[in-house]
Structures are given as structure tokens and as C-alpha cells.
Design a protein around this nucleic acid. Structure first.
Lengths: 337, 337
DNA sequence: CTGAAAGCGCTAACAA
DNA sequence: TTGTTAGCGCTTTCAG
């Protein structure tokens, strides 16, 4: 049956629109009897409030915006699951936007948010993002925004991250302890928080273990599977080739394995591999892959929870809020032996 | 700078609200000079129209709803990419809802859509969905809805699918030609369109090749990784165990590989495996996995394009519209030898 | 070419 | 306890 609006419902019941509205909101100024009549009729006539009318009136959209670089990635899809689980519980709706790793896209998306489409924003910035005016502008407009995973350090708002420095350290340490001496680090950005912190951890481990880190072992990979394959192949073909690889994101797993296969480099004998990854298939790869597994679902969930806390209570502050949820190194065959 | 609304902009320019609105919409009744003044001021004062006010007035939300069973799945995340690519081009926003394979959830989500939150819907139904009243109700309310991948056959609206029957056939044929005689088929639902069509193809191939298909080889897997593992283990432990497995969805890959590993069954020597999968890692699994790869991105893109065609021209009909985009069998080591 | 005014569907202050 | 009314921000007749 066609659904009906509040006006039609009022006409049907010969009650005023406001009585209906109040009854529907269980207002104390409405008698129990009337409430029941209204509720029954609402069900019967299939009344569904127009969300945008309420939003316009009430200045809240019951919608949050989520901005991520891409969705075809285990980390981000699991994070969405976490976000969705709490949004659903709170009766909120989730608008998802993909920056596709482009700063320009990200800027346009955030600009749109300033019109009132969303009550709050959860973002993991693009690999290109170095300026943060677009983010500060949004926050200045009164839209609460929380970073998860990929943050802008210079923006003073809540950040949900994992222990990137420590993870980078542990990854390098794991390999150094296995006597690797030329550990390549595959980064995806010169500016990205996660890349840099993971890299710093990697460097610190080298320092602590008194192994010099070769600048040539730090390689930047573009956002293009084929190009990455080429870059990695070149890295592995140089005369002083690495004896281990740390790939800082999941996307790099396949090109690394492929390149090793092509060059007949045995993992782990000729070269050891660790990836930052949430791939379910890590354990059934050939060979099974040692991973730094991030708490993707939890990070999304935590970010969303905090956002809703802010949305529900005006006086909650997001400033200086920094939650770090640790990642786990899971050792498998790609670094064994 | 704080963004401004149309009223403030009007006051600022000493023009009427309606003039501003018309100028912003490039109306022919406004002089070029005024248009320029308005546009400049809009940029300067950072005017962003309130989307919900426009929606309320114009009866269109510029938003589409996407309902999928889950997002942490290569097929669906790639389909989202396809959908998003055209939504972005059209200036539409994408609300994503997860049914988590629950009919109840799906029903609630669609019920919400009846209030005017979205202009159109793209859906891939849950594995539990057998009734389709919730879908017909929505369509009856005038919300265009298009199925992609998982459809309800009894609903007369557009459906974007892949060639499930043929894919099931090809998968079975591929294995039958390699002398497999006890091919297990791992299904995820008794009712789901994709499961049934793939299964029918599988059965047809058996018939064509004059190989009897054993009912015991058709196994239903729940939506739970651990339980699936158990189910598959049991399947492989029976005395007359299968010599091949067709897994009808990506999620089943890991449990199949794990179970084989545990039972020391060599893939492909002891048992061959094909999965319906869009996993990027298929080619680097141990052994590399023969897949039926679906045109996920294209399916999402095609579904979205058709929806927008409908949204843009009222006279487009979605009835009897059936687009089938073929899948590809990619033979790899899991079925070789 | 520009402006006044109605109204999209809803909520809430104020009246009755 | 119920009803009247104003107005959220915008678009769109209709007048001027």
C-alpha cells in the first residue's frame, strides 16, 4: 500500500497535524488513548515520516558521511562494517564517498558536507592529502569530524589509529632477527600519516639493531597495480637486491608475490615478505603470508561510537582525543626459515 | 569561512531570494549581469544549498540507496565501485545499507526507503529472501528499484545478472573433462537465484556428460566461517568423498583450502577446486585458484546507469529489462593435473 | 527582468 | 489535552 504523509493521516483521523506529530513522538501532552489511535492508524496507513522534512526542521539529518580512499580493500570494508554496526544501532544512515586517493575528490566531497547533508563525518584521508584546510573548514562550520587510520596530524580533532610506529618497528624487528639485512619498505605516499609512522618504526628498529638502513630500500609505490608491479620488479632486479620486503598496504601483496614468482625468487628462502594486510586469504597464500593485521572493524566501530557520543551530547570535545588500537603481527611462512 | 544560506546571500546582495535562486539555476529570466554578481557572491560567501530543503521542495533527493548483504566481499565492493562511478558522474549520493544476509534487516531497510530518502534503489537480496512483498511495496510506492546479481525472479523490474547457469555449467564441465566424478557443489541458500541457477548449470552439465550427480554432493553452507569449515571438513571426511569442489561464493575459499590442508588432501591432485570469486589473490594462492570471475564492476555500473536512465526520463520502463553480463572461467593450478 | 508569496512535510512554541 | 501557527531553506508560480 502506498505510504501516507502526516497531513493525510491527520485528515483521516480528524485530528490536527501537531497532535499526530506529538503522539508519534510519544509526547507527554497527548493522552494515552489518542496515542494509541494515532499509532494504530500510522501502522495501518503505513505512515513513514519524510526524513528530509524532519531534517530541515530539526537541523539534524540522522546521517553520517564516511570518506575513504577506496572500498575494494579489506581494511576499509571491515571498517565500514564497524561503522555500520553502530550507525544501525543508533538509527543513523551512512553516506559513503570514495576519494579514490585523490585530494581534489576529497576536497569536493567535504565541501558538499558543509551544506547540511550530514551531521558528522568519519574520514580516512587520501594519499595525496597534505593540506588540511578543507577539513578545518568543515569543522569550523560545526560539523564534527573524526579521523580513522589515515589522519592529518595538524588538525585538532579525534583520531582513531592503530600503533603504526610500533607495527613498523615490529615488522622490521621480526625480519632483522631473522638475519635480513636489506629490508625494502614499500610506501604509498610521502605524506600519509600511516606510511610515515610505519616507516619511522622501521628506521628506529634498524637503529636499535645497529643495522644501517639503505635509502634505496625505501620505495614509493603509485596507485596503479601495473606500475607497482614494475616498480617492485625493478627493486628486485638491482644487483644489491633486498632480502626482505615490508609492504605497507594490502594492495601491494599481489604485485610482490607476482614479481617474486617471475624472477624466480623463493619466498621465504630468497626473500622474506611481510604485508600490512587484513586479507582473509593471507593464510592460504603461496606461501602463507606474515601480516600486520589491523583492528579494522574495531577502529571503525570506535570512531563511530565516539562520533555519536559527540552528536548526542554537545559538550563532548573531540580535541586531543586520540585512541590507538594495536595491530597484531601474525607470523606465517613468508618469513619462516 | 562559515557557509551561508540563500537568505543571507540575498540580504548581502540586496536582491530577493527568488532572484538568487533563479540566477543560481541559470534561469533565462535573469540578466547576465545579475547572474554574474550572484555567482561571484555565492563563491565568495561560500554558499552551499541545503540539500534537504531542495529535496523537500523538489521531491527528489539526488540520492540512491544500495542494499547489499555485506561489504567485505570482493564482488560487492567492486560493484559499489561501479555504482559509485556513475553516481558521482550524475551528482548523486549513495546510501549504503547492509542486510547482513538477513531478510528482516532487508525488509526494514526497504521500508525506510518508502519515506522519500532515496530516489531509487539498487539491491542484491539476502540469502534468506524468499518473499518479495517488501520489494513490490517499494516499487508500488513509485521508487524505481533494480536488482543486481541476486534477484527475485517474481518481481517485474530490471535485473542485472551474470550468466549464472552457464557459469555453473562451465565450472562442472571443466571438472568433468578432467575426469572428476564426484563434484561437490557448495551452495549458500536453498532459495537464492544465483545459488539455484549455478546449481542448475552444474546439474545440466552432469546430465549432458552422462555422469550422475549425487545429491549428497550438494551441500548448503551457513553464513558463518567456522561452521562452514566444519561442514566442509565433514564433507571431505566421508568415505565416498568428493574429488572436486565448486564453491559458489568467494567466502568459501578459505574454509575449503583450510579443510583440505588439515585433512592432507592435495589440491589439485586429491581434489580439484573452483570458486566463484573476484579475489585479487586468487592467482597467488597455494595452489593458485581456478575461478569463475564475475564482472562485478560492470554489473554495478550497468545497474546504476539503467537506474539513472529511469530517474532522468519518467517514461523509461524497467519491466522486462534483463541484462546479463558474462562471467569468465580462469583456469589455474587448483584444477590442473 | 525582479520580487512577493505559497508550500514541500515536518516540529514546536504558543494558544485555547 | 488538543489545535493554530510559524518557519526550517529552498523552488516556483504569479505579479509587478
Amino acid at each position: 500500500m502506498k505510504s501516507v504523509n502526516i497531513k493525510e493521516l491527520a485528515r483521516e483521523l480528524k485530528l490536527s497535524i501537531s497532535t499526530i506529530s506529538k503522539a508519534l513522538h510519544d509526547s507527554h501532552e497527548i493522552s494515552a488513548k489518542t496515542k494509541k489511535i494515532v499509532l494504530d492508524a500510522a501502522a495501518k496507513f503505513n505512515y513513514i515520516p519524510h526524513p528530509y522534512a524532519s531534517s530541515l526542521r530539526g537541523k539534524k539529518s540522522k546521517t553520517i558521511g564516511v570518506v575513504i580512499p577506496e572500498v575494494a580493500d579489506s581494511f576499509f570494508s571491515l571498517a565500514i562494517n564497524g561503522i555500520e554496526s553502530v550507525a544501525k544501532e543508533k538509527g543513523y544512515h551512512v553516506l559513503i564517498y570514495l576519494s579514490h586517493e585523490s585530494f581534489e575528490n576529497e576536497k569536493n566531497i567535504l565541501q558538499q558536507f558543509r551544506g547540511g547533508r550530514v551531521d558528522g563525518v568519519l574520514i580516512s584521508v587520501s594519499r595525496e592529502t597534505i593540506k588540511s584546510d578543507h577539513i578545518n573548514d568543515l569543522i569550523a562550520d560545526g560539523i564534527p569530524l573524526i579521523f580513522f587510520d589515515r589522519v592529518c596530524d595538524d588538525v585538532d580533532t579525534a583520531k582513531i589509529t592503530t600503533d603504526d610506529f610500533e607495527s613498523g618497528y615490529r615488522a622490521a624487528e621480526h625480519l632483522l632477527k631473522k638475519q635480513c639485512r636489506r629490508i625494502a619498505f614499500l610506501s604509498i605516499s610521502y605524506s600519509l600519516s600511516i606510511s610515515n609512522k610505519r616507516l619511522e618504526g622501521y628506521l628506529q628498529a634498524h637503529q636499535d639493531y645497529k643495522i644501517p638502513a639503505d635509502k634505496k630500500m625505501i620505495v614509493y609505490c603509485p596507485d596503479d597495480a601495473k606500475k607497482n608491479y614494475t616498480v617492485i620488479k625493478k627493486l628486485l632486479q638491482q644487483k644489491n637486491r633486498p632480502d626482505a620486503i615490508i609492504a605497507s598496504v594490502e594492495k601491494l601483496t599481489a604485485p610482490v608475490y607476482k614479481a617474486c614468482e617471475l624472477l624466480k625468487l623463493n619466498i621465504p628462502k630468497d626473500i622474506k615478505v611481510i604485508c600490512f594486510s587484513n586479507l582473509v586469504t593471507a593464510s592460504i597464500l603461496n606461501p602463507s603470508l606474515t601480516t600486520i593485521t589491523q583492528p579494522a572493524f574495531d577502529m571503525g566501530k570506535t570512531a563511530a561510537k565516539l562520533l555519536f557520543r559527540k552528536l548526542e551530547k554537545k559538550n563532548v570535545s573531540l580535541k586531543k582525543e586520540n585512541i590507538v588500537i594495536p595491530s597484531t603481527l601474525i607470523a606465517r611462512s613468508s618469513t619462516t626459515g
